[in-house]
């Protein structure tokens, strides 16, 4: 008897975990399918006739579409750059010994920890002077401050796990270091590179502070636009929640793909 009651408690506990993690997400998605009247109902409506009106509205709204497009361009470009710059650096950190390696490492980690507000202030002034405010480029570059460390970390870890014998053999065949990197490390490290790219995409897609400060009208990203609907007296809740769902859905799918690596990505590998 004790055994089965333990089992029931276990099942209840796990169900509670699932409800806890999914409820706010579910509440957003369900609100995006409710009419405004259903959203504003008190007590809340649990069973309702779903409507696609809010999705129709946002997919006809050039502001939302443009913002999603901006987010896509910026997140993709910054991720590509992060991999392009980060993978070779990771190769060096994984394979070479040199003085200053731990300083370099410290620098990458502190970049992960620094509040974006620290850089947002000077970058705002610099971008203002360089007439770079409200451009894709400024966000693509500034997002590298947190993407590059992530890519470097995950790729270093991955490259370290590649057996050195392969490199020895290639070297005997007269391959230079760049060839070894390109022909051995890049293909064999591809899974790690992909994981780091996904993380980089998620973090860039989700970012709000820099996007809020460094963009005006043309380059607003999806989170900025979603947030901007939050003003006025009667809020368009359905539209806001539909936009929220559209923003969150792609990154949730990505996150599920890399869920096994989530802890590594978020702790910079301090715990395995």
């Amino acid at each position: 008897m004790r055994f089965s009651s333990g089992k029931i408690l276990h099942a209840i506990g796990l169900t509670a975990v699932i409800l806890f993690t999914l409820f706010p997400f579910y509440w957003m998605v369900s609100a995006s399918f409710k009419t405004q009247a259903d959203i504003l109902a008190s007590p809340p409506v649990w069973v309702f006739a779903p409507t696609l009106d809010h999705y129709r509205e946002i997919f006809a709204d050039s502001k939302v579409l443009g913002a999603v497009g901006n987010s896509l361009i910026i997140a993709t470009a910054t991720t590509a750059l992060a991999v392009l710059l980060g993978a070779p650096a990771a190769f060096a950190l994984a394979r070479y010994e040199f003085r200053g390696k731990s300083d370099l490492w410290f620098w990458f980690i502190s970049n992960r920890m620094t509040s974006p507000i620290v850089l947002a202030l000077p970058v705002y002034i610099l971008a203002l002077q360089l007439k770079m405010l409200d451009t894709h480029l400024v966000l693509i570059l500034i997002y590298l401050t947190f993407n590059l460390p992530i890519v470097v970390w995950i790729c270093t870890d991955q490259f370290k796990s590649i057996p050195p014998d392969l490199e020895q053999a290639a070297r005997l065949d007269g391959a230079d270091q760049f060839t070894i990197f390109r022909k051995i490390y890049l293909p064999l490290g591809a899974p790690g590179i992909a994981v780091s790219a996904i993380f980089s995409f998620i973090f860039s897609w989700n970012e709000l502070l820099y996007a809020l400060v460094l963009t005006r009208r043309d380059v607003q990203t999806a989170p900025v636009v979603a947030t901007s609907f939050m003003s006025g007296y009667e809020l368009p809740w359905g539209k806001i929640m539909a936009t929220g769902t559209v923003i969150v859905l792609p990154v949730t799918i990505f996150a599920l793909i890399v869920s096994r690596h989530m802890v590594r990505g978020l702790t910079m590998g301090a715990t395995k």
């Binding site: 099942a11 796990l14 169900t15 975990v17 699932i18 993690t21 999914l22 706010p24 997400f25 509440w27 957003m28 609100a31 959203i39 998620i202 897609w205 989700n206 709000l208 989170p223 900025v224 979603a226 947030t227 939050m230 809740w237 806001i240 929640m241 929220g244 923003i247 969150v248 990154v251 949730t252 990505f254 996150a255 599920l256 869920s259 989530m262 978020l266």
Partner: peptide, 28 residues
């Protein structure tokens, strides 16, 4: 099954755009 499902759902809050967490908070 329940365990793997719970494990997978744990990723959902972590991936949710922080700004959207704020929007959901405003609603809730």
């Amino acid at each position: 099954f329940l365990k793997s499902l719970a494990r997978v759902t744990l990723v959902v809050p972590l991936a949710t755009t922080y700004a959207v967490v704020g929007l959901i908070g405003r609603l809730i």
